[in-house]
Design a protein around this nucleic acid. Structure first.
Lengths: 234, 234
DNA sequence: CGTCATATTGATGGGCATCAATATATGTGG
DNA sequence: CCACATATATTGATGCCCATCAATATGACG
């Protein structure tokens, strides 16, 4: 389970937000500083106060971050799921870990990016930092938008926005788009239940705004859909 | 209106997410590469295809980002409000602007951070990149949590979490916390209305979970509040 | 003290979740 | 290739959470 080829590691690294958009050669050099780790539930990954030796990406399972309080009880800060990374801020700017981390599932597989070699790469090639800052801030902009939409727009408006933002192909007087995920995952991303998603699409289909065929969606009345995306049409 | 002292500029820069956490001397050096701009509604800030000369923070007003489509119509990508920045990713990694930007209000005041001097700073001192990456990823983690909470937890659970995360002072058998914002702003941050916030606090006060006195909150029954934060108690 | 923003409280309604049942799709082994 | 098992999707019935509208109370401040 601890055996991975370098290009597996590289691909896995490129999937983390932190490294999104880095050119393959750079990823390869980071991969060289990376090694896989496996833990069982409860296994300690890093201990609060220890010198930072690495930061981590979660491939499978989950990790619980916690601080030990003066009274000995532990205070859970955060739970890190597969696909996210942790301790990057610590590894980049602090000498010691400010919190402990333990596996929260069996098995939990991690990628550990060693601090020293990574910092040598980072400091030696400013374009790495540029790209990382650029893609992190782009992602931040996107997420801030998501937060605002979630709390300000109806489920229907959010769905309409997703449909309008999807790459579309013109087809006569209508547009065709293809849903990039299963409907249940799309629902999760929109923060609604699959039932609600199904009902919304059904209503719009009855009103001839869209036409649904599995994952193929035909936008029949784009103007109406735009109004729905603004939450100004019922 | 275009007159600002250097330390005003520095303070304003430090308030942008992009620069959060940078040490004052570094902010001062960035401030030296920064100058204020003012625009009236509709005024073009940058033009798609032009060489990147700077990136921008919005002090007042708002900016509309858009791309010109082949058919000449403009496609609005995003609206940037006061307190946010834009074109950072472009300035850091692209030779030319991938989109145009125009002021969407009168007046719109911006800070323009010149690309070349900024990149010289960035490339010359790797700790700047480290700090920026660290604070951006910390913010990202925080926002991802917010998105999940917004779509998965009730308003009450979100409020309970805020109360429990606030710095508290023990006071006999209870904890005292101080709301850091006006209740209406706290409500906005939670994605609820002030009325709902008021009703939640009222209900909890009636049940002796908390006691409210203006912005002072006394947590009487922490166990119960923790249950509320998990959405497992009514 | 009057004025304006903020906060509280009530009444009402709609959006969306929940629970439940069925239909369709996807995949698996014989 | 079909029969079965399992995941995903649709549709209906019901109810609660929370927004909305409205009225009043409380506070901040010149």
């Amino acid at each position: 389970m601890d055996r991975m080829h370098d290009d597996e590691v590289r691909r896995a690294l490129g999937a983390f937000p932190l490294f999104e958009g880095l050119p393959p050669p750079t990823l390869a050099r980071i991969a060289a500083a990376t090694r896989p780790e496996s833990h069982e539930e409860g296994g300690l990954v890093v201990r609060q106060g220890e010198p930072c030796r690495a930061f981590f990406g979660v491939l499978e399972g989950a990790v619980r971050l916690f601080r030990l309080r003066p009274d000995g009880r532990e205070h859970v800060l955060h739970r890190v799921a597969a696909g996210s990374s942790f301790a990057e801020a610590a590894a980049l700017t602090m000498p010691n870990y400010p919190a402990s981390a333990a596996a929260a599932a069996t098995p939990t597989r991690l990628l550990a990016v060693a601090r020293e070699p990574f910092l040598r790469l980072f400091d030696g090639d400013p374009s790495i930092g540029r790209r990382m800052v650029a893609s992190l801030s782009a992602r931040l902009v996107h997420l801030v938008g998501r937060v605002e939409e979630l709390s300000a727009l109806s489920a229907g408006a959010r769905l309409a926005r997703v449909l309008l933002d999807l790459p579309s192909r013109a087809d006569g007087s209508s547009l065709r788009v293809e849903l990039p995920l299963a409907k249940k995952d799309l629902a999760a991303q929109l923060g609604i239940t699959p039932e609600t998603l199904s009902r919304l699409l059904r209503r719009w289909q009855d009103r001839r705004v869209v036409s649904i065929d599995g994952a193929r969606v035909e936008i029949l009345d784009a103007a109406r859909l735009i109004a729905l995306a603004e939450d100004v049409a019922p």
